[in-house]
């Protein structure tokens, strides 16, 4: 159920400890992400690494576009993958 109290928003950087999103090493967009050769047989750790890589790339793409709608679109996809990444972590 919804909590009756509400905590007003407070300015902060995202809590990476709570989001448990580990920044991967940056990779250029035109090279293969980690372990793409056999995604259907990849391990959870490999899928996790791929998701992390994608989030980084999506954020970089978002930062490089001047179109606000496209920027929001890319950031939303990145956020969705962060949600997936955090769901996958123990």
């Amino acid at each position: 159920m919804e909590h009756s109290s509400h905590t007003p928003p407070h300015r902060t950087q995202p809590d990476h400890a709570r989001l448990t999103f580990a920044e991967p090493a940056h990779a250029p967009l035109n090279v293969d992400p980690p372990n793409v050769a056999a995604p259907s047989r990849s391990t959870p750790a490999e899928r996790q690494a791929r998701t992390d890589w994608l989030v980084t790339e999506l954020r970089r793409l978002a930062a490089s576009t001047d179109n606000p709608h496209e920027q929001a679109n890319l950031r939303r996809s990145a956020d969705s993958l962060i949600r997936l990444a955090t769901a996958s972590r123990p």
């Binding site: 919804e2 509400h6 989001l19 954020r59 949600r83």
Partner: peptide
């Protein structure tokens, strides 16, 4: 029901909107 815990975290530049699994809204 909603799993929202009533908490909102205001982020700067990284997350646009995120419903975190602990019930916090970013």
């Amino acid at each position: 029901q909603t799993a929202w815990n009533g908490q909102v975290v205001e982020t700067v530049g990284e997350v646009l909107g995120l419903a975190h699994w602990d019930g916090t809204l970013y």
